[in-house]
Simulated scan of single mutants.
Amino acid sequence: MKHIFSISLISLFFLISISFQTKAQISNQPLKMPEIGYPWKKSELLEPSVLAGFIQSGKEEIAILNIGAVEDLPGALHIGAVSDERNMTKLRQLLTNLPKHKPVVIYCGCCPFTKCPNIQPAYQELSKNGFTQIKVLDLPTNLQTNWISRGYPIAKKQTNK
């Protein structure tokens, strides 16, 4: 049983490392949707199941940034909605301390991508600052539908005593 678990864990790490290093074979052009132009490529979208597996593995090799007004994922740094200039300033300050080659996953999930005021500005800020391994958590509907309802982990809320 331990042998099967070890093989599964090694396979998961392999798949995650590939997802951060491979380029899309479909197109190298930015993902486009009707009437919406996204700055990220399809290869930069990260499936929720992949991130959930990475979180459950306990490795801390990536930075997960909550750039919206939604629940935090385990290990995520809560920036807040970057459509608010104060939170964009927090993001800019955080980015000065992160290595440019470090994998960074951003997510919001407040609403569908087509309406989200936070994902594009955060992605553009990371790109402008020279980050080379940016991933956008693929939450096309919202965090509740594409993450929570699938049973993926949410950070426990802190209680004030």
Score class of each variant (00 low, 15 high):
49 S>F: 04
96 T>K: 15
24 A>W: 00
161 K>R: 06
143 L>K: 07
105 V>K: 09
74 P>W: 13
12 L>D: 05
117 P>V: 00
111 C>W: 00
102 K>H: 05
51 L>T: 00
94 L>H: 08
77 L>Y: 02
123 Y>R: 15
64 I>K: 13
16 I>N: 13
58 G>Y: 05
63 A>Y: 07
105 V>H: 09
60 E>M: 12
86 R>C: 02
45 L>Q: 14
86 R>V: 01
123 Y>A: 14
156 K>W: 04
10 I>Q: 12
42 K>H: 02
57 S>T: 06
80 G>V: 07
23 K>F: 04
31 L>C: 02
99 P>V: 00
149 S>A: 12
128 K>F: 13
38 Y>G: 04
132 T>K: 15
124 Q>P: 03
41 K>D: 08
112 P>H: 11
96 T>W: 03
90 K>V: 07
24 A>V: 00
124 Q>G: 01
32 K>V: 04
89 T>K: 12
105 V>Y: 00
108 C>M: 04
19 S>K: 12
73 L>V: 06
80 G>I: 06
3 H>T: 14
119 I>W: 01
4 I>Y: 12
154 I>L: 11
91 L>Y: 01
88 M>F: 01
27 S>W: 00
154 I>M: 09
29 Q>M: 13
32 K>A: 06
13 F>Y: 04
17 S>V: 04
61 E>W: 08
141 T>Q: 11
89 T>E: 12
53 G>L: 06
95 L>S: 12
110 C>M: 08
109 G>S: 04
23 K>Q: 13
130 G>A: 12
5 F>P: 11
50 V>P: 02
155 A>R: 12
49 S>G: 09
76 A>N: 13
12 L>I: 12
119 I>H: 00
118 N>C: 09
143 L>Y: 03
139 L>P: 05
88 M>V: 02
73 L>E: 07
39 P>Q: 10
78 H>Y: 15
16 I>C: 13
52 A>P: 10
23 K>Y: 07
119 I>K: 01
46 L>R: 10
97 N>R: 14
